[in-house]
């Protein structure tokens, strides 16, 4: 377990998620926070890519950011796990370092 990749930008506005998916090695984890959580939904222009990436990475979404934006968990792509702030801290501890794709 080495790098926790964090994406906080909407995939429809910025290319942060693209950069992350291009440059994260297999066995990394990706945590979607803030506007990054929009990438976690089913049925969007990026959901196929996100679903395909799940073969390589465990993907998490931050639940307070989902709730704030009215995205309920049943609309998430299968296999995406949600974490709360404690879970965020735990992830940050579990990995050697984090990479924030601004």
């Amino acid at each position: 377990m080495s790098v926790l990749h964090i994406v906080n930008k909407s995939p429809f506005e910025r290319n942060s998620l693209d950069a992350c998916l291009r440059l994260a090695q297999a066995d990394s984890a990706i945590l979607l926070i803030e506007d990054g959580i929009y990438a976690a939904q089913q049925g969007t222009a990026v959901s196929d890519r996100v679903a395909a990436a799940m073969a390589k990475y465990q993907i998490y979404a931050l639940s307070p950011d989902l709730q704030a934006r009215g995205i309920s968990e049943d609309r998430l792509i299968d296999g995406i796990k949600t974490v709360d702030y404690d879970g965020f801290v735990q992830l940050a501890c579990d990995f050697d370092k984090s990479q924030s794709w601004l």
Partner: peptide, 8 residues
């Protein structure tokens, strides 16, 4: 290279 770093 990213993987090999200590600080990003």
């Amino acid at each position: 290279i990213i993987e090999q770093q200590d600080v990003l």
